[in-house]
Nucleic acid binder design. Sequence first.
DNA 1: ACAAAAGTGTTTCATATACACCCATGG
DNA 2: CCATGGGTGTATATGAAACACTTTTGT
Lengths: 243, 243
Amino acid sequence: MQAPSEQNYIQQLSIDCVIFGYQEKQLKVLVPKMNFRGDFWALPAGFIYQDENIDQAARRILEGRTGIKDIYLEQFRVFGDAQRTNLQVLERLVQLNQEKLRDHWFNQKEFDWITRRFVSIGYYALVDINKVVPQKSEMDASIEWCPIKELPPMIMDHNEMVANALETLRLNLDQKLIAFNLLPQTFTMKELQELYEAIFDKPFARNNFQKKMLELNVLERLEKKFTGAANKAPYLYRFQPQG
Amino acid sequence: MQAPSEQNYIQQLSIDCVIFGYQEKQLKVLVPKMNFRGDFWALPAGFIYQDENIDQAARRILEGRTGIKDIYLEQFRVFGDAQRTNLQVLERLVQLNQEKLRDHWFNQKEFDWITRRFVSIGYYALVDINKVVPQKSEMDASIEWCPIKELPPMIMDHNEMVANALETLRLNLDQKLIAFNLLPQTFTMKELQELYEAIFDKPFARNNFQKKMLELNVLERLEKKFTGAANKAPYLYRFQPQG
DNA sequence: ACAAAAGTGTTTCATATACACCCATGG
DNA sequence: CCATGGGTGTATATGAAACACTTTTGT
């Protein structure tokens, strides 16, 4: 691992990513747990190289944790309070991990660099959870898909970030037709509806939902999907704008 | 003027403000013109002190140019392309203003500081144009309210910023009930309608508009406003949520 | 034949738009 | 009393929500 302070990063500016996935009828967020004593959960984050667009930086961070390129992502807010430091977090972390840290990891220079006040640009991303193989960073003990209703307490303002990202996602969902990024290429109407219900945390009427989706003229109807169940087989659909 | 590089600012991070006002049935933006040969228009901007929230910084910048506190403002986007530098702008500026710059203003250190790549947080603000006394900075030749349809070509991506801010304003207007920030405390229904028409650049039906606004239950009807015209006197209204 | 779930059509309601009318005001 | 513009009421169109019915599937 290269020391952040040695890299050609923009100072005091970071990116935090809320990566949304969908699985088992639940909206989930990809949350790494840090490889230290004490429970330190932190959203996937990173810094911006001098020669890199902020969107590129976000894509690089996302690719590093998900293994896939071409991810749908969007800014949702900047978090910039003056007190926004991970000084408290790191002090507690150092307290609980003295033997581990004595050796390498943080020297004073790194500690100073990383504990300064940081302004962070929040991005949210939507991924097909089946295509993702979560990647640990050197700092992580694990990285897991966590149902949005069961998020652990994360460091700093990261829980607030997720809440903000979800709010923005809900606002944009109808206008920008981005829900499909959370599904595999083909899906049934019921699966799409259950996704919407997971995102908005409320039920939708089946027939009206179908009507509304079909009238968007972005769904291409494919063959039926026979599951072996004793009922009418649903159609598969593909997201196909202007089709 | 203090040299920016000497100040305790966050490096490479700036704030640009799109300040909206309303006058003569037009939506206007407060645009300073820089005090140099050549036409350099630039949005009110500034940097963030180490001990200052980004919102506070935006308020400080806004107060400096408008003379008023308590301004409605909101983030709308971050602009962070790697090529986002005012190097070209400053080179042209120096080219055209050699005699003026020879003396003081920019030394090499300042030039280097200011021409680095900057990530900028875009804020838009809504003000009662009658309360504002536009304030020049030391760098400005003038500062004026410019109709949004007649904006000059500004430096860097500032025209794009205004377009983005307007887009966000339109999206938020109905949901957040913020249009009233652009009007004096009391106003007639027609004035409110004309404001909406200026913002959306399209006409609204008079009676339906009135109905819609009254049904929001945020307008308090006051006395009539007698203008001396030979017609029915309109009511004055005050924005009063939950009234 | 039956239960289960998918697909589609119809009615109802709320809201937005269009149309019409009456009222106050000052000359 | 008339022209002008303001306020309000009523019809129509549009879209959302609720309700009902038919079709397909495997046992």
